[in-house]
Design a protein around this nucleic acid. Sequence first.
DNA 1: CATCGCAACTGTATCGTTACAGATTTGAAG
DNA 2: CTTCAAATCTGTAACGATACAGTTGCGATG
Lengths: 352, 352
Amino acid sequence: MDSKTKNRPQTPPPDGGRPTLKTIAFMTGLGITTVSRALKDAPDIGAETKERVRLVAKQIGYQPNRAGVRLRTGKTNVISLVLTLEEEIMGITSPMVVGITEILAGTPYHLVVTPYSAVKDALAPIRYILDTGAADGVIISRTEPHDPRVALLTERGLPFVTHGRTEMGIVHPYHDFDNERFAYEAVRKLVAHGRRRLVLLEPPPHLTFYSHMRAGFERGLRDFQADAVSFHQTNIDHSLVEIRDAFEVLMRSEDAPDGIVSGSGSGAIALIAGLEMAKKKLTEDCDMVSKVPSDFLRWLRPEVMTMYEDIRVAGRELAKAVIGHIDGAPAETLQSLSQPEFQPPIIRGLRA
Amino acid sequence: MDSKTKNRPQTPPPDGGRPTLKTIAFMTGLGITTVSRALKDAPDIGAETKERVRLVAKQIGYQPNRAGVRLRTGKTNVISLVLTLEEEIMGITSPMVVGITEILAGTPYHLVVTPYSAVKDALAPIRYILDTGAADGVIISRTEPHDPRVALLTERGLPFVTHGRTEMGIVHPYHDFDNERFAYEAVRKLVAHGRRRLVLLEPPPHLTFYSHMRAGFERGLRDFQADAVSFHQTNIDHSLVEIRDAFEVLMRSEDAPDGIVSGSGSGAIALIAGLEMAKKKLTEDCDMVSKVPSDFLRWLRPEVMTMYEDIRVAGRELAKAVIGHIDGAPAETLQSLSQPEFQPPIIRGLRA
DNA sequence: CATCGCAACTGTATCGTTACAGATTTGAAG
DNA sequence: CTTCAAATCTGTAACGATACAGTTGCGATG
């Protein structure tokens, strides 16, 4: 066979299978390499040729074989969302996944969900991804001030973004909710309602946003002259029953607070239950501000003042940031903080 | 070079990279083919050789390159979860994803989330997966009696499982919640509470479980001698505001029901709001049974009687079923129905 | 009319794996 | 001492894509 045309498929590729570069090469009479480079808009391919190739590719619905690309180039076109199985409790995964996929829909990226179970295993999925080259970028949450995952990913140069910030002197992409301001504004609001003895249902101390929320809470106490009621033994990672029971005890004590800042929506539910078990009533004995990821609380307990953390938007921001990181944008430009705002109450009139 | 050893790597594969069959071949002095077959436990490889290969493979942490396998064999080791972006509202995705990944964790499968937006596009992601060979198996939900996705997947022979049943004479794997029985038991319970004028907040009519739930409801009405109050213009896919407003009108009318069966947890929230806007009270003017995917309602409105649909378990069942289908198990053995049960009320005493 | 540079295109090798068709060795049967 | 079969191992080609190092043709330059 003439070596000049060895790269040109002589037989029409078997029909029924999906089109490959070979198919296009056969149809256009070009070499496979040329077709490949034409589709990449390489500078050494003629303008008219590119046009022809693009047209044929579109006509037959050519889509590059992911395995081929991945094997040759190492590019996986995968973004990995790393989740704790326990994260489910907060019901946060749904809108997050939706937000991420909204952004990925316009790209060649697929979203792979990579779970891990115990907290001590948090590094395991990261190692897996690094070792097997399973993804081009990673999204992690439940960020800690000194997060070994961030250290490892940075060291190995795999693009990532965190949901939450770190404090380790590494500049990396992140998206976060401004929990400092949330707690600060919550205190302001409660004081405006005449509340002075405030309690905070806080995040677990090892997560970064613990200190943010505490800082905002304490700054609020100082600025608006209120007092803290201690509730440190309990945090939003505890079970609803634990939170409820601990809070009932507190509400029955001498030390009972008259204002509550809840760092989580489900925590708020447990606090309300504890409060009611102690025969106290919202708005009468106590006011409450809660961060919420959904509308449930507002509908069922409109007397709770809520600040909405839009997880879907967070998912979008995170997705944009990883992709930006993959594309080489500087990390400083891939950081965002979403500002809390109080939600208007649900309108209880007809045709709202 | 001696052709006898052409397949044996002569140079130690560059360190730092991840191990491949070549690495093991070099270390054991065997051919690449032999190593491949040894790891697959092929019958034509000696027992001792297999042992040696396995040992080395384990020692160096060999994991087959997914792109290589996929390119050569077409096996993707991917399960695709096909979701509506709108599904988020029900907050059902989180526990579903968790359940699925729990099962996949023990397998080589990864979970890829493939979304679609409009209802009319429901076929688009399926076509994409079929055309690009993106997955070995598919999980779909929001099943319809005559579901074109099921038809297409069956025709093209791609293993799948549905969350919900179909009525098209095709035997395929599914997992479903017994909505017929749910509604039936709900009616029984309401009648036992002295309620006789019952309303059903039903699923949208095009989904299969609409007729299941209606059938159970109507069978209950007959068996327990209660009457239906019409509320057909509204269903669980409508917005909370729409449901609330429509229900307020109903509750203010002559025709007001005294018992409610709610086909969804978030729908129940809207119904409660509508009821309260009509100045009616739960347990006094009206009782309610709702299907719920989480604990929120039980905590905040313990007076609602609930049947828990465990989505996490559903995720597990679905994952097991697709894998079973991929492995060639007969579809009849991959069908399961989860039975509803009333939940005990939240215990409102200390140390529950 | 060589020679050179440039534009446009192409072949080969390779990524890691597996299907397939041998190849070699060993021991037993004839 | 052949012959054969079984047991064990191996090389080659291919999956689809791309990096790299050419090759070809052609007009401009000296």
